[in-house]
Simulated scan of single mutants.
Amino acid sequence: MKNYLKKTICLDFDSKEVQALIAEFKTNDIDEIEKAKGIYLKIRDEWRYNPYSISFDAEKYKASTIAQRDEGHCVDKAILLAACLRGLNIPSRLRFAKVTNHIAVEKLTERFGTNVLTPHGMVEVYLNQKWLKATPAFNKELCEMCNVKPLEFDGENDSMFQEYNGDGQQFMEYLEDYGHFDDVPLTFMRDNMMEHYPEVFNSNKVDYSF
Rank of each mutant, 00 (worst) to 15 (best):
A58Q: 09
A58L: 11
E32Y: 15
K37A: 14
Y49N: 10
R48L: 02
V105E: 13
I66K: 02
R111Y: 02
K62C: 07
S55I: 03
E32C: 15
I33T: 15
K42F: 01
I103Q: 04
E106Y: 13
S55W: 01
K98P: 02
I90D: 06
G87F: 02
V99D: 00
K62P: 08
F96I: 11
Y52R: 14
I66R: 02
F96C: 14
H73K: 03
N50T: 02
N115H: 07
V105L: 07
V116R: 07
V105W: 04
I90A: 12
L94Y: 08
E110G: 11
A83I: 06
Y61I: 05
Y49M: 05
I54E: 04
I43N: 04
V105F: 00
F96M: 15
I90K: 13
R95V: 15
A63C: 10
T109E: 13
T65S: 14
R44Q: 06
P51F: 04
N50C: 05
Y40V: 10
C84R: 03
I43F: 03
L80S: 04
A67K: 08
Q68F: 05
K77M: 09
A58H: 00
D76S: 07
F96W: 14
I90W: 06
L85M: 10
G113A: 12
V105S: 07
E59Y: 01
A82T: 09
A63M: 06
E106N: 13
K98E: 14
E46F: 06
R93T: 05
S64M: 05
R93V: 08
A78Y: 00
L41Q: 13
F112V: 07
Y52V: 10
N115S: 14
K37H: 10
Y61M: 09
L108I: 11
A58S: 14
L117G: 06
E34T: 15
V116H: 05
R86Q: 07
T65Q: 11
F112T: 10
C84P: 04
A67L: 08
D45N: 15
E59C: 03
I90N: 06
Q68T: 15
C84N: 08
R48D: 07
A104T: 03
I103P: 01
T100N: 09
I66G: 05
H73M: 06
G38R: 13
A83T: 03
K77E: 04
D57Q: 05
F96K: 13
K37I: 15
Y52Q: 11
H73C: 10
R44F: 00
P51C: 14
I79M: 08
T109A: 11
I39V: 14
L88T: 14
A104L: 07
P91S: 11
R48K: 14
S53E: 13
E46S: 10
S92L: 10
K77L: 04
Y49D: 06
H102Y: 12
K107R: 14
C74Y: 00
R48W: 00
R44W: 00
N50Y: 02
S53H: 13
I33P: 10
Y40W: 06
P91Q: 10
A97P: 00
E32T: 15
D76W: 00
E59F: 00
P51M: 03
Y52M: 15
I33W: 05
K77D: 02
L85P: 02
